[in-house]
């Protein structure tokens, strides 16, 4: 499981996810846009990202390296 701080930073940043797969980039972009529109949804967006990583373990490494 990815470090929660890394995932929060991933969602609150707007930078490139260097080395991440195309699918991870598109998903994270959607979560970032939705979070910017409604900052109170952080927990829900974090949960969605964690679920994605749980099903796609390689994504955790991608985000840790980004």
């Amino acid at each position: 499981m990815a470090n929660e701080d890394i995932l929060k930073r991933t969602l609150s940043d707007s930078g490139d996810l260097k080395g991440a797969s195309l699918g991870t980039r598109i998903l994270v972009n959607r979560l970032r846009v939705e979070l910017r529109a409604n900052p109170t949804t952080l927990s829900a967006k974090l949960a969605e990202l964690k679920d994605y990583i749980a099903r796609n373990p390689a994504a955790a490494a991608e985000l840790a390296q980004a």
Binding site: L17, T24, R25, I26
Partner: peptide, 8 residues
Amino acid sequence: ADYAGANI
């Protein structure tokens, strides 16, 4: 658009 480094 820049989707976390992917140009869309």
